[in-house]
């Protein structure tokens, strides 16, 4: 079946995600219940928004290892303002601004100081983490939160959680940006062939700053939504999402547009990973099994598509190979 290969190369891992859902549907009577699906979707929303930011940064072939710590810092700053008596709009704006500022800082270090993003964003991550602990003095903001703030994540519209609508909005914006605008074309060209793009007149430094700024903003939004959803804000609350986000983007790169970070792939991968994690819990797997499976997914998604992903721009960069 020769005609099946390109189909599998493009949709293979998306189908694998579907198989995961089917397997758990059979193994667990609860898995497909609307209440459980709602849980998976809400979890997918946090992960999806965070991963979409990472997708935009990775499109320019830059990594952002600060996403989780920036999201936590944004949550903490938002929490501090809400508990300090500020209104929800001001607190949310502050959380988003923190994310954006961290993203801009990443972009400035990467492009102005010409530093590899692997190192630059690790530095910003440590700073964000430290600031988070400084603001909270090591404890979490808990207690009663005003409904004007918690409604952001806990409300629903047309039977779907607000969180899912947030994901749809961010996903749509990222899809339009990457696929249908000149800026998106320049972001991709920067990631795929930086020097050729620069010589063709593309402002590659600006594109990297834009990708990393968008990534920071998405992390900020994730932090705000986490605080709103959980009614708490702790300096390490988004930590668990870090490896999940990287796995989602890498797994997403194996589908739809093999080798390229892409919006649809990231969202489907985020859902598949969260369905997998949820299913494992339902069938009684120990808590640590999730992490082990996640590591397997990261390695397998790169190995499975060694053809497309192995030559992806950022992989070339990381392996210090000349393209």
């Amino acid at each position: 079946m020769k005609s099946l290969r390109p189909f599998l190369a493009t949709y293979g891992t998306a189908l694998a995600g579907l198989c995961v859902v089917l397997v758990f549907a059979v193994l667990s009577p609860v898995f497909l219940k609307p209440a459980n699906l709602a849980i998976i979707l809400r979890e997918t929303a946090f992960l999806g928004i965070l991963s979409l930011g990472f997708t935009l940064a990775l499109t320019t072939a830059e990594l952002d290892l600060s996403i989780a710590d920036v999201a936590s810092l944004a949550a903490v700053v938002t929490g501090a303002l809400v508990h300090g008596g500020f209104g929800a709009p001001a607190a949310v704006a502050a959380g988003l601004t923190i994310g954006l500022v961290c993203g801009l800082a990443n972009g400035a270090v990467v492009t102005r100081l010409a530093m590899p993003s692997l190192i630059a964003t690790l530095g910003v991550a440590a700073i964000a983490k430290g600031l988070g602990f400084m603001i909270t003095q090591g404890v979490a903001f808990v207690g009663r939160w005003p409904t004007s703030f918690t409604g952001l994540a806990r409300g629903s519209l047309f039977g779907l959680s607000n969180l899912v609508w947030w994901l749809i909005a961010v996903g749509f914006a990222a899809w339009v940006l990457l696929g249908w605008t000149r800026t998106g074309a320049h972001l991709r060209a920067t990631g795929e062939a930086e020097e050729a793009a620069r010589l063709a007149g593309v402002r590659t430094g600006r594109m990297k700053r834009l990708g990393l700024a968008a990534c920071g903003l998405a992390a900020g939004l994730t932090g705000v939504l986490l605080a709103s959803s959980l009614s708490s804000a702790a300096p390490n609350m988004a930590g668990d999402h870090f490896l999940y986000a990287i796995a989602a983007v890498l797994l997403g790169m194996t589908m739809f547009e093999p080798g390229r970070p892409n919006v649809a792939g990231t969202i489907v991968a985020a859902f598949s990973l969260k369905a997998l994690g949820n299913g494992l819990v339902l069938v009684g797997a120990a808590y640590y099994v999730q992490d082990i499976v996640l590591g397997g997914v990261i390695i397998a998604s790169v190995a499975l598509s060694a053809g497309a992903l192995g030559r992806a721009a950022f992989v070339e960069k990381l392996s210090f190979r000349r393209p």
């Binding site: 074309a185 320049h186 991709r188 060209a189 795929e192 062939a193 050729a196 793009a197 063709a200 007149g201 593309v202 080798g259 030559r311 721009a313």
Partner: peptide, 13 residues
Amino acid sequence: APRLSITENIFLG
């Protein structure tokens, strides 16, 4: 840019 399409290359920038 090798991985971009013919059209994307011609219209790059």
